[in-house]
Design a protein around this nucleic acid. Structure first.
Length: 229
DNA sequence: GCGACAG
DNA sequence: ATCTTGTCGC
């Protein structure tokens, strides 16, 4: 079900071609069912790196998955970054490492949360969308700020949201997950609309600003970094 | 030409 | 992403 969408190019031109194809794809839309499981992917890098970093930077990819009524399970993959950070080319730097971590989870989850954009991207295929396509799982992006899209801040109350548009397409929402706290950016990605993305994020968010599975993936990645380097 | 620009 | 000082909130 992944097909060549699972490819992780190692140069900018090839990645851009894959992104254009993924951005133009129209896979069957997915919607959450009661009791769906939520997985998440997060990457951190060695401390002390300068600016955008470079290929070979030591990285730790954390992945976590939680089914309702069970404890969360997490794994970590350790390996080198594939590239420096460049806006629009994040998959080059982090794609393979994140895919390795998510693939080693005990079970895949029904939907994957990623701290990256989805359709808010020059070629409509940010890393959240790419990772979902590569792994064959519906995905949702959650970031602190948009890449291309602009929007107005939502009202202060919990669950307030405002749409983010690119070329007239709703690619995401600014979403107030906690009253009075800075909004998160929720991104439509692989097989998810912006509206479904908001529902998934609200369903996975507890007391904190960001969804619990993403926090668990981050905790695992940082713990592994502290233990090895 | 310069700054901005997911992580 | 990481660094760092300061501030606010539970």
């Amino acid at each position: 079900m992944t097909g060549d969408a699972g490819a992780w190019p190692v140069d900018p031109d090839t990645l851009a071609a894959v992104q254009r194809r993924l951005g133009a794809a129209r896979p069957p839309p997915w919607e959450p069912a009661t009791g769906h499981t939520v997985a998440a992917s997060y990457v951190c890098f060695a401390r002390g790196l300068r600016g955008p970093g470079a290929g070979g930077d030591p990285g730790w990819a954390g992945a976590a998955v939680k089914r309702p009524g069970s404890r969360s399970e997490s794994v970590v993959a350790h390996g080198p970054a594939g590239w420096a950070y460049e806006p629009g080319l994040l998959a080059l730097r982090e794609g393979p490492l994140r895919a390795a971590a998510v693939a080693s989870l005990p079970f895949p989850g029904d939907v994957l949360l990623v701290d990256a954009t989805g359709r808010d991207h020059p070629r409509r295929a940010g890393l959240a969308l790419h990772l979902g396509a590569a792994l064959g799982v519906p995905s949702v992006g959650v970031t602190d700020r948009p890449l291309l899209a602009a929007g107005t801040p939502p009202a202060q109350g919990r669950c307030s949201s405002t749409a983010l548009l690119v070329d007239g397409e709703v690619v995401g929402y600014l979403l107030r997950t906690r009253p009075g706290v800075r909004a998160v950016v929720v991104h439509a990605a692989w097989r998810t609309t912006a509206q479904v993305a908001v529902a998934v994020v609200l369903g996975a968010t507890r007391r904190m600003r960001t969804p619990q599975p993403l926090r668990e993936a981050r905790r695992a990645a940082r713990a592994a970094r502290g233990a090895s380097g």
